[in-house]
């Protein structure tokens, strides 16, 4: 491994100036569960690793009146061990509690999972179906990008030179909103998704679906937003038939590849099934939500 410096700035401004100075010769360190493995594997070479966990904004986990403010370096366990957050965002807990095992969850952050931009990331689909927003700081100030548009290719995101992810904002869910995420892996734990599906539905007072979002993992170069499948649910009752139809449409919106974890055909089929099942859980949660 190429030797690098360890830098631990304590303000957003310092992080930006450090990243601007080093350019692509620096990376941010949050939980390290991806970046240290990639450095050791020689995927890229850097001169500085910038530990962002000393910056208060990146470690903030706050449930405000407007929604959830999730610092980019907050480790997964803090999400599911916070009773208030877990109750308000069970769909995000679905993801936070399946990324790696307990050791990984002590370190790995949802912000890091997003920046790593893996097509199989377990948290990005959950964020998308919650209409989450990435809050970015950079040399030209702050900007916001919808999580749905944050990833631009395998391992590639919208961050420009000197920019980094400060936090993720998850708006407060509407009344009768429910969300869920499921993935398929051949083991029970500790594996990378062959395919995954996140879904959210919002019901009106009569129990009809008035809004729906579906996002699919590991079936394309980035997480896929299955907007036609979601649109098929509008003004419908949350029935198994409606969800099966949405699953059929979602399967058509994928463009997976064959790899060591599964064939493209298998992933299409998984998308169909996971979409249906995830929608069913999301709808149950929506019925239970105030």
């Amino acid at each position: 491994m190429h030797p690098f410096q360890y830098l631990a700035p304590t303000t957003v401004k310092e992080v930006v100036s450090t990243l601007s100075r080093y350019g692509d010769r620096a990376r941010c360190l949050a939980g390290g569960t991806d970046v240290l493995v990639q450095l050791r594997g020689g995927r890229f070479e850097i001169d500085a690793l910038v530990d962002v966990k000393g910056v208060p904004e990146l470690m903030e986990l706050r449930l405000g009146a407007d929604g959830l403010h999730l610092g980019a370096a907050v480790p997964c366990y803090r999400v599911y061990e916070s009773p208030r957050v877990a109750k308000a965002y069970p769909g995000i807990v679905d993801s936070a509690s399946i990324i790696g095992g307990i050791q990984i969850q002590s370190r790995a952050s949802i912000g890091g999972n997003l920046c790593n931009a893996s097509p199989s990331a377990d948290s990005i689909c959950s964020l998308i179906v919650h209409d989450a927003v990435a809050r970015i700081a950079g040399p030209r100030g702050n900007r916001e990008v919808e999580v749905a548009g944050f990833c631009v290719g395998p391992g590639k995101n919208v961050l420009r030179k000197g920019e980094f992810l400060v936090s993720i904002f998850v708006p407060k869910p509407a009344a009768r909103f429910g969300a869920a995420y499921k993935r398929f892996i051949p083991r029970n734990e500790m594996d990378i998704a062959v395919a995954g599906a996140g879904a959210s539905v919002t019901l009106n007072a009569k129990g009809k679906i008035v809004a729906a979002r579906i996002a699919l993992a590991a079936v394309g170069p980035t997480p896929i937003v299955a907007s036609r499948a979601a649109a098929s649910l509008l003004d419908r009752e949350p029935t198994p038939e409606a969800f099966a139809r949405a699953g059929d449409i979602a399967a058509l919106e994928t463009h997976p590849i064959d790899d060591m974890r599964g064939t493209a055909d298998y992933r299409v089929e998984l998308s169909r099934v996971l979409t249906r099942r995830t929608l069913a859980v999301a709808a149950e949660r929506a019925k239970g939500a105030k």
Partner: peptide, 16 residues
């Protein structure tokens, strides 16, 4: 155990 949470020590820098 790092500050009471279990971690994989291969994925933590000594400096941390």
């Amino acid at each position: 155990s790092l500050d009471g949470r279990i971690v994989d020590s291969c994925l933590v820098l000594g400096a941390e």
